[in-house]
């Protein structure tokens, strides 16, 4: 019975999706285009849908769907490896994003005051980890840590994450510094504010949006990273992606599907929020 409901729900979801996409093209009546989009979306989503479906499997294999159950979600509580890895990932992402935001913002201030030639040179070198292939960055850091003989673990992982996050923060703060109006800062000084107070009251609020978006970017990049973490984390301290990768050597427990489903839902909600909040705001101002 549950199975029937689930399949009906899945079908309903798919058909409503298909209907939505078709209706998008109706104004030009290009049915071929709609089919094209649907096919590519099926290609992109079929693996994810199957992954989610089997997280509700009452059986233990991905071979047969033997019935609907939440048993793998309950199992998640016993998967200490996965939960530890999830905790590690969050800790590293949090600390790395805070440190890289501080360093990246500082770097943006230094760079903004350099002469054009120096600015170009410093930016180009700072951005290398942003453009370079992850595996090259990962190996270079691994060799660096081996060379100065720091044992791989939490510290090396954290350094690596801060290192690849810094340029992203700098790049999102730099435009804000460029837009700063110098005279408001000078006006604050003329009115008797100390440089520190003037910075806090005048400059800081102006650059804050850039700093926040840089910090968020750093946080998500840290959460999502696999390759650099893989080379710099060693065997004792695992992040979630490294842990799941090590599980692929054996049969993967369906608890991984359950965890992935939860993460997918979390991302989905965040993206919905981010995408539709501006629209809602716009509507509100229109009403007002």
């Amino acid at each position: 019975m549950k199975m029937v409901i689930l399949v009906t729900l899945a079908c309903a979801f798919f058909f409503s999706l298909i209907y939505l996409i078709i209706s998008a093209f109706r104004e030009k009546c290009k049915i071929e285009k709609a089919i094209y989009v649907i096919l590519t979306m099926i290609f992109l989503y079929a693996p994810i849908v199957v992954l989610i479906l089997f997280s509700f499997n009452s059986g233990n294999t991905r071979a047969v769907f033997s019935g609907f159950s939440l048993v793998h979600y309950r199992e998640l509580g016993e998967q200490t490896d996965l939960l530890n890895a999830l905790r590690n990932t969050l800790i590293v992402a949090l600390i790395a994003s805070v440190i890289s935001t501080l360093i990246g913002t500082y770097a943006a201030f230094v760079i903004s005051k350099l002469s054009p030639f120096k600015k170009n040179a410093v930016l180009k070198t700072l951005n290398i980890p942003m453009l370079n292939a992850d595996i090259v960055t990962g190996i270079s850091l691994l060799l660096f840590f081996v060379f100065i003989s720091i044992p791989l673990g939490f510290v090396t992982l954290l350094i690596a994450h801060v290192m690849f996050n810094v340029p992203y923060v700098t790049m999102s703060v730099l435009p804000k510094i460029r837009q700063l109006n110098k005279s408001t800062y000078e006006a604050a000084l003329d009115l008797g504010a100390s440089p520190a107070l003037a910075f806090r009251k005048v400059i800081f609020p102006e650059i804050l949006p850039g700093v926040i978006s840089g910090a968020l970017l750093a946080f998500t990049l840290s959460l999502d990273d696999f390759i650099i973490s893989y080379f710099t984390s060693g065997s004792d301290f695992m992040t979630l992606s490294v842990c799941i990768n090590s599980m692929t050597k054996k049969t993967i427990p369906l608890a991984v599907n359950a965890l992935s489903t939860l993460l997918f839902i979390a991302v989905f909600i965040i993206l919905l929020f981010v995408n539709f909040k501006p629209a809602m705001k716009k509507k509100k101002t229109q009403v007002a």
């Binding site: 996409i21 998008a24 693996p47 994810i48 199957v50 992954l51 696999f226 992606s241 991302v267």
Partner: peptide, 23 residues
């Protein structure tokens, strides 16, 4: 649709590859 396109990019690379592998 661009959100639908972005959504898989926000999933971890390993999870995505594992999802494809399990097909």
């Amino acid at each position: 649709l661009s959100m639908l396109l972005l959504l898989p990019m926000w999933m971890n690379f390993i999870i995505r590859t594992y999802a494809m592998l399990s097909l």
